[in-house]
Design a protein around this nucleic acid. Structure first.
Lengths: 203, 203
DNA sequence: CAGCTAACTGGACCGAGGTCCGTTTAGTAA
DNA sequence: TTACTAAACGGACCTCGGTCCAGTTAGCTG
């Protein structure tokens, strides 16, 4: 079924020179450490370059932008997440009905946001969110589920709309400014999804 | 009823010195002209300062940030919009049922986005969106309507969630990258709202 | 091993948003 | 008119994301 949507987030370039690979490793390692120590918001790209013992040009050659670097640091988690969605256990993976899978998808994403909101914020800044391959995967997944639950619906649009409710900026605002607990956001998501989709008739 | 929510977007500071007022006017005028000529994305703050014949410090003293300047330029339109919401004709203003008012609200906001998307994008960049008073007004309005339609619901959270579907970044993505026509977004909004709220029982 | 080239490197550089602070000026009180 | 002060002014300056390009090097080929 939807196995076809497995897009590797990071393609290890087969024709990558040894020094390039080494520097990529150094950069990722240094970035991970700095983000962990100070929080992603307090680390500049110069900091990363210096900590990795690498010039700024190299840093940007490897990871075209700040948002991209954040995404790369998160790629492991994202890969696991995609794996769980595509081949994992229900209700996240195949086997459950579309509505339940959607609810589980959102709740899992909210957990990820809770754990890495500063990094995700950095990755989703500005239009970067929509450009990132991970967003494409999420959108496709949600679109397919929506289509499965209700084929007549405008699933494409609704997918992007629902995903907007799981954006990092909104999340941070709701949690930190409005002070809403995580569970409340999950309940809200569940309610939103259940109301937006009809109950499956034939099951 | 909800007349109480009228928050003036721009409070003309009563104790504002004459030179300050003059410069504020110059800046707004120059900004409006430049944005109009080149599009908001191609105008730097230095450009605005120079065109207004004012130092950069003055520009930032008057309007603390780029996002704020954009908001100020939009404030006229926003004031009209708030007026229409609070005291205008139904279905946007009071008189229609909450669901219809919500649908109308979103459609009107989508029209505004369509007309001024570059300015709104500039105004909503990053966390600025949530900080702006206009967002507060919109949120309050939507919250009250939701509460009216279904008092048991978590209206606070749902309001922010629904507003996320009307964000400028999402709008630009849907229109320009995904190529969706405006009417499609309006239909999607209507569908989303109607499904999220129960039909009024007593009318 | 020598020669070649495509890829990589790194730091100088740029533009833009935003801050700082010494100077100027509007408004007021004597 | 003069003296005084709080406010406004403006441009030098800072930080930071991102680009450029001259020099270097990995890895292949003969």
């Amino acid at each position: 079924m939807d196995d076809a949507l497995q897009l590797p987030v990071i393609e290890s370039d087969s024709a990558e020179r040894a020094d390039a690979a080494r520097n990529r490793g150094r950069i990722l390692c240094a970035a991970r450490r700095l983000f962990d120590e100070r929080g992603a918001g307090c680390v500049s790209m110069d900091d990363v370059a210096e900590a990795a013992g690498v010039g700024k040009g190299t840093l940007f050659r490897r990871f075209g932008s700040r948002a991209s670097l954040a995404a790369a640091v998160l790629s492991e988690r994202e890969r696991d997440f995609q794996e769980a969605i595509i081949r994992g256990e229900p209700p996240l993976g195949p086997g459950a009905c579309a509505r339940e899978r959607l609810v589980a998808f959102g709740e899992a994403l909210l957990d990820t946001l809770d754990a890495h909101c500063d990094l995700l914020l950095m990755a989703e800044t500005g239009p970067a969110r929509f450009a990132h391959p991970a967003y494409g995967v999420h959108r496709l997944h949600v679109t397919l589920l929506l289509h499965e639950a209700e084929p007549e619906r405008d699933a494409e649009l609704l997918a992007d709309t629902l995903l907007a409710a799981l954006g990092a900026e909104l999340f941070v605002y709701l949690r930190e400014v409005r002070g809403m607990p995580l569970q409340r956001l999950k309940d809200g998501w569940r309610e939103l999804v259940l109301r937006s989709l009809p109950v499956a008739e034939l099951r």
